[in-house]
């Protein structure tokens, strides 16, 4: 009884005020103009190819980020899980450490590093490739998003791998499975929940990211989040409507990807819920 009461501030104040009300505002601005119901904005967004470019950019950046993070994150998490407890704690701390810093600051640091005449260009020019442009390219944006989101891929996978029952691996070996077979038949299937939450935690925020592309993209790569930001800052009503409609598109995309991820997760692991 007492415990239920403790959740009241969250359920009745925090959630309505900061989660439900903003969503309702987004819905309102997407469908109403001067208090009149309108489908104008939805038509404008759907029937027009104006925002298609930003949409595809966001999608491919998010997908590429997720794939790269997974390809890098899984081996890292696996190696971590094989380490002694103490070393593992230390190394994983090194991965978590950057997360304690504000994401904007980290991105700003990338800006300095990638800037013309910056450290990376100096290194490249040492190898005779000093004229390669780094900042204001899609590559710069991708690099920074991968950097920002990599810990979100490593941690959930690491947690599942750590909880993995060692005796299962031993049993597999006893039954004659070699290293590769043990990995694909025993370790990988059991770490699916970790992979799923890793993918969700990287893909969803990467899809809506905008600060990174604003700072490192120089408008050469426009992302959906950036378009929305621009619309809201412009301040006029009609533009606000389009910004809200685009936000709605983003929310729907997030929900869809969550549903897909949950499906896959349920199919794969009957036991145990998702992490995080």
């Amino acid at each position: 009884m007492k415990r239920v009461i403790l959740s009241y501030p969250y359920v009745f104040v925090w959630m309505p005020l900061f989660i439900i009300a903003p969503m309702l505002f987004v819905l309102y601005y997407a469908f109403f103009r001067d208090g009149q119901f309108t489908l104008e904005y939805v038509q404008n967004v759907v029937a027009n190819d104006t925002y298609l470019g930003a949409f595809w950019n966001s999608l491919w950046i998010a997908l590429a980020t997720t794939v790269i993070c997974l390809l890098m994150g899984y081996p890292i998490a696996y190696i971590l899980s094989q380490m002694k407890k103490r070393t593992a704690a230390l190394v994983s701390l090194l991965f978590i450490l950057p997360m304690w810093m504000n994401m904007l600051l980290r991105t700003l640091a990338w800006k300095v590093l990638l800037f013309d005449g910056g450290v990376f260009q100096q290194i490249l020019s040492f190898f005779g490739a000093g004229n390669v442009q780094l900042i204001y390219t899609p590559g710069a944006v991708l690099l920074a998003t991968v950097y920002d989101f990599l810990p979100f891929m490593i941690l959930p996978i690491y947690t599942t791998l750590q909880k993995l029952d060692r005796s299962l691996i031993e049993a597999a070996h006893d039954l004659g499975a070699n290293g590769a077979q043990t990995f694909t038949k025993v370790v990988l299937p059991q770490s699916v929940p970790g992979i799923i939450s890793g993918i969700t935690m990287v893909f969803v925020p990467a899809m809506s990211t905008f600060a990174v592309s604003t700072m490192l993209g120089g408008k050469q790569v426009m992302l959906l989040g950036q378009v929305i930001e621009e619309k809201f800052l412009a301040g006029t009503d009609s533009v606000l409507g389009i910004g809200s409609t685009l936000s709605l598109v983003l929310i729907i995309l997030v929900i869809v990807s969550m549903v897909i991820m949950n499906r896959i997760d349920k199919d794969n692991s009957a036991s145990g819920g998702t992490l995080w």
Partner: peptide, 12 residues
Amino acid sequence: SLYDAAWNRIFK
């Protein structure tokens, strides 16, 4: 709004 529309077209 005419300018906004033009801007959208430039960066679509």
